[in-house]
Amino acid sequence: MDEMGSASGGPRVGTPLYQLKAEFFKTLGHPVRIRVLELLSEREHAVAEMLPEVGVEPASLSQQLAVLRRANLVVTRREGSHVYYRLTHPQTVELLRVARGILSGVLEGQAEILADLRAARPGG
Rank of each mutant, 00 (worst) to 15 (best):
Y84S: 05
L61G: 09
E44H: 02
V56C: 13
Q64K: 12
G55F: 04
L65Y: 12
L40G: 08
V67S: 09
V47N: 05
Q63E: 00
E79T: 02
L68M: 00
S41G: 13
L51H: 06
V56H: 11
R70W: 15
V75T: 14
A59E: 15
T76A: 06
S62G: 12
T27Y: 00
L87C: 06
P90Y: 09
R69E: 09
V93L: 12
H45Q: 14
S62T: 04
E94G: 04
H30E: 15
R86W: 14
Q91P: 00
L37A: 01
S41D: 04
V74C: 02
A59L: 08
L96C: 03
V74N: 09
A66F: 14
P31V: 01
L96Y: 12
G80Y: 07
S41M: 05
R35L: 15
S60C: 10
R86V: 03
L51R: 03
V98M: 07
R69M: 13
A71D: 14
I34K: 11
G55H: 08
L51N: 05
E42W: 15
V98F: 11
V54F: 04
L96W: 12
E79Q: 05
E53Q: 15
V93R: 15
V56L: 02
V83Q: 11
L51P: 08
V54R: 00
A71H: 01
E57Q: 13
R35I: 14
L51K: 05
V32N: 00
Y85L: 07
E57S: 07
R69Q: 06
L37S: 04
V75R: 14
T76D: 08
R35V: 07
H82A: 13
L87P: 11
P31H: 02
P31A: 01
L96Q: 05
M50L: 08
A66W: 07
L39A: 08
L39M: 03
T92H: 12
V36R: 05
R33A: 03
V74M: 02
G80W: 13
G80Q: 04
S62Q: 14
E49C: 00
P52T: 02
L40V: 09
R78C: 12
V83N: 00
V74L: 10
L40Y: 13
E42S: 08
G80I: 10
V32P: 06
L28G: 05
E94T: 13
V93S: 14
E49R: 10
E49P: 05
R86H: 11
H45K: 12
T92M: 15
V56D: 09
H82E: 15
E38S: 06
